[in-house]
Amino acid sequence: MPPAAPFWSSPADFDAALRALPGPDMDAIAAAAARQAQLTKPAGSLARLEQLALFFAGWQGRAIPALDHGRVLIFAGNHGITVHGVSAFPAAVTAQMVANFNAGGAAINALAAAAGLDLRVVPIDLDRPTDDFTQGAAMSEADCLAALAIGAAAVEPGLDLVLLGEMGIGNSTAAAALAARSLGGSAVDWVGPGTGVDADGIARKIAVIDRALAFHADAPLTPFETLRRVGGREIAAMAGAALRAQQLRIPVMLDGFISGAAIAPLAAAHPAITDHCIAGHCSAEPGHDRLLRQLGLDPLLRLGMRLGEGSGAAVAANIVRSALAAHAQMATFAQAGVSGAA
């Protein structure tokens, strides 16, 4: 595991950071809205694109926001629960796909390039899977804090947008456990095929999650404890990245079910964590739509994708580019010599 930056030295420190989340710049939103009112179009005619422009203005603190420096972060980790046959692929595929990312051969490489985004891949202890969370916590406190810090360290000041993606065989099972423990419901409400398991594989996933939820039923329902008990290193890293991005007032675009589940424990205790988040898409994973609704996030796209890797978010980043281009480049009524609305 890479050395952890000193972001949160204890679970209490992490929780304190969640309680101190900053909000958007309301003056910048007002200035952006004033500009929108002067652009050569009927008010509200660009709908969600106008809303995106105001959202970015608030978090970037400027009336004309930009997407000059966007970054896709792919965190990778392995999971001890794969011993229960919860995935259609062996755990070795995680490292193999990381190599593919680094060689430029994966879907996210092509999609990030098409969207003009930087891509960074962060593998975390792939040779040391998390523990089987049906028999104990997935991570020790130290391991969970380290993973959170690794995620936070990948978010640098000056970024205009961070897109969260992941790679980890078995992590759709962990994500379903996180969603159930954080937002309610049973395993059957959150489990889907993930990498493509059949009906027997889904039944195994449900059984694994039910055992885990029962085993950890008496544990504190804090964000940190939920992440460390039924999460994974790459999932905790996404949570750390999301928190650090909000501290730096950098918008975050979530990808699929797993990136949304990464912030579910945080949102259950501190709903403001979603204020700077956009849902790039709603995936084909059955629990994703329910998860987004409970997080209060309306996805930009519904394309039936279920790849992960940040792929849906990368496609959605092109919509953000369109929104910001229209906001920045359209003429005002006065500039174009067009009569405005009465």
Rank of each mutant, 00 (worst) to 15 (best):
E50G: 15
E50T: 06
E50F: 14
Q51M: 14
Q51I: 11
L52W: 01
L52R: 00
L52V: 02
L54N: 05
L54P: 05
F55M: 10
F55E: 06
F55Y: 10
F56V: 08
Q60D: 12
G61P: 06
R62Q: 12
R62E: 09
R62L: 09
A63T: 00
I64R: 15
A66G: 09
L67H: 00
D68R: 13
H69G: 05
H69K: 05
G70P: 05
G70N: 01
R71L: 06
V72F: 11
L73K: 10
L73I: 02
L73D: 09
I74Y: 04
F75N: 01
A76N: 12
A76K: 13
A76T: 09
N78F: 02
N78G: 05
N78D: 14
H79G: 04
G80C: 03
I81V: 13
I81C: 02
T82W: 08
V83N: 11
H84Y: 10
G85N: 12
G85F: 14
V86F: 03
V86Y: 02
V86T: 08
V86L: 07
V86Q: 07
V86R: 05
S87G: 03
S87L: 03
S87C: 05
S87T: 06
F89Q: 09
P90N: 00
P90D: 09
A91L: 00
A91R: 04
A91W: 04
Q96K: 12
Q96N: 15
Q96S: 14
M97K: 09
V98L: 03
V98T: 06
V98W: 02
N100P: 14
N102V: 02
N102T: 08
N102F: 05
N102H: 14
A103Q: 13
G104C: 10
G104S: 14
G104D: 06
G105C: 03
A106H: 07
A107E: 03
I108P: 12
I108K: 12
I108L: 08
N109P: 15
A110D: 08
L111M: 09
L111P: 11
L111H: 09
A112D: 10
A114H: 14
A115C: 04
A115G: 14
G116H: 08
L117N: 07
L117Y: 02
L117D: 00
D118H: 13
D118E: 15
L119R: 13
L119G: 07
L119A: 07
R120G: 10
R120Q: 15
V121K: 02
V121T: 09
V122H: 13
I124Q: 13
I124M: 10
D125S: 03
D125A: 01
L126E: 14
D127F: 01
R128K: 13
P129F: 08
P129V: 06
P129E: 14
T130R: 03
T130A: 00
D131A: 15
D131L: 11
D132F: 01
F133H: 02
T134C: 15
G136H: 01
A137G: 11
A138H: 06
A138M: 10
M139S: 11
M139T: 11
S140A: 09
S140Q: 12
D143I: 01
C144E: 10
C144V: 06
C144I: 13
L145T: 09
A146I: 04
A146T: 09
A147F: 00
A147G: 07
A147V: 00
A147E: 04
L148H: 12
L148P: 15
I150C: 14
G151V: 10
A152P: 03
A152H: 00
